[in-house]
Amino acid sequence: MFKKEALKLTQEWDKTFDKSDLVDHEKVTFVNHFGITLAADLYTPKSKEDKMKALVVCGPFGAVKEQASGLYAQTMAERGFVTMAFDPSFTGESGGNARDVYSLDINTEDFQAAIDFISQLNFVDKEKIGIIGICGWGCIALNAAANDPRIKATAAITMYDMPRVGAWGYFDEGSADARYETKKTIAALRTKEYLSDTLEKAGGCLEYPAPDDVPDFVKQYSAYYKTKRGYHPRSVNSNAGWVLQSTTGWMNNAILTHPEDLRNAVLIVHGEKAHSRYMGEDTFKKLQGDNKELLIVENATHTDLYDGGEHHYIPFDKINAFFNQYLVDEKK
């Protein structure tokens, strides 16, 4: 067993959503198999019972547990699940250095380590554990589920295929030549920064309101991450952004290399008007089995599924029904 790092955890309620009176909340930590200590918020229904169904939540990519993942976790706890929202390695209150970097391998392990932890709780049924991944963590959730049969059901919400965007850009409008030029730039930056005390950041979301000449989805990100609606001081996207050296991390990776290994249930949820919808739909086509479902939420954009937006777009009733359907005793 790895030794835990002593993390400095904020004890006051500093979420972007109101605290529920229907659930109990506590800060917890656990260690992944790379030896990184992760911080999480554990939510349990006040009417706690023995051997309850459990959900682990993470995302969006560049967010922290005080944002969308915490909202999903708390809401599903209100519906009777033990839930946990965690900060990925190198971000938020979790450990790991350098800060604000990412890795498909390590982040996939983050989900699996969260399963390790929550399955040991004596009030959780370790045979009834699911995960929710939001935005870029939707693809990471599917990757984890393909690796780990303990994950009985997975919901990928407004998902990004991060390696696809990293390699080909938005809407696949990039090229191999453009990708190579980026690699040359990052290689030169690595040489420059090797002896440096700081690592250059890519920059977070544009300040709100974003300029008129940027795409609508960029404006939507600013309206979430840079306003009271979703801003958080520990969020990568709300502040200086990811370390630029991480950029090449997606370029020679792929999710679901063996989609046939993902045998347990999957629900992919996308907004009708989400710029990312094509990624979820194309990923859904790769999935096999009759326990996979794609839900398109009418009129919703990508970020509407972070917090519901003005019209409460998050289909919590459907998500609840999905996990109740598939987190059951296999013998029944």
Rank of each mutant, 00 (worst) to 15 (best):
V124Y: 00
F322A: 13
S119H: 01
Y278M: 01
L262V: 04
H232A: 05
T158A: 14
T248D: 08
Y102S: 15
L42A: 01
Q245W: 12
K318I: 12
D261T: 03
K48T: 07
Y102W: 06
D18S: 12
E281W: 03
R190M: 10
A114I: 06
V165C: 07
C135W: 00
A153G: 11
R190N: 06
A178M: 12
G271A: 11
K152Y: 05
F17V: 14
R99Q: 15
K273T: 03
F111Y: 10
N320D: 08
T227M: 06
A114W: 04
V236G: 09
L262T: 04
R190F: 06
S103Q: 12
I319G: 00
L256N: 04
C58M: 08
D110N: 11
H312Y: 03
K65F: 00
G92S: 05
K8L: 13
A54E: 04
D177Y: 09
V218L: 01
S238E: 02
W250K: 05
G80K: 09
G289S: 10
F34R: 15
R150V: 00
S196V: 10
K3G: 13
L22C: 04
D317G: 13
I118Q: 01
S89Y: 04
E127R: 10
E93G: 08
G133W: 00
F81P: 03
T198L: 13
A254N: 14
G80Q: 02
S276Y: 00
R229C: 09
K292D: 06
G249N: 07
N107P: 08
E5T: 15
P163N: 11
E26S: 11
A274T: 02
E93P: 03
G166D: 06
E207L: 10
E173I: 04
A240N: 07
Y102R: 09
H232E: 05
T198S: 13
V218I: 08
A63F: 01
I131P: 07
P233Q: 07
S94P: 10
A210C: 05
G309L: 08
P88W: 14
F90P: 03
V101Y: 06
L22I: 10
S276K: 00
E310Q: 14
D216S: 11
A187D: 11
L7I: 08
K128D: 02
E293N: 08
S238L: 03
M251D: 14
N239H: 12
A321E: 15
Y160D: 09
R234I: 10
D216E: 13
L104S: 13
S89L: 09
D213T: 15
N237S: 01
K285M: 12
